[in-house]
């Protein structure tokens, strides 16, 4: 079950063939290597088109979102494997 977090994070992105793919995320001073993007989707909030990603580091599942107007990332939720 996804636990609600709603905290700002940092993300390292790979831009390739017109697609932005998160590779690493930094949360609570720890880097997580993203092994796989499980699902990506978009959500319109006013003029802003938010980019949602469900990603995994092979163990935990993270729901992250990119806000293009402020160029910021947020971790919305996490499903911890432990």
């Amino acid at each position: 079950m996804l636990e609600e977090i709603n905290e700002k994070i940092a993300c390292e992105i790979l831009f390739k063939q017109g697609k932005a793919t998160p590779r690493y995320l930094l949360w609570k001073k720890r880097w997580y290597k993203i092994e796989k993007v499980l699902l990506r989707w978009e959500e319109r909030k006013g003029r802003e088109l938010l980019r949602h990603f469900s990603v995994t580091d092979g163990c935990n599942t993270f729901h992250i979102v990119f806000y293009p107007e402020s160029l910021t990332w947020k971790l919305l939720g996490i499903d911890k494997c432990d």
């Binding site: 996804l2 499980l38 469900s54 599942t61 499903d79």
Partner: peptide
């Protein structure tokens, strides 16, 4: 199914 894809657990 979409939810299961977004969260494999």
């Amino acid at each position: 199914s979409v939810e299961q894809q977004a969260n494999p657990t």
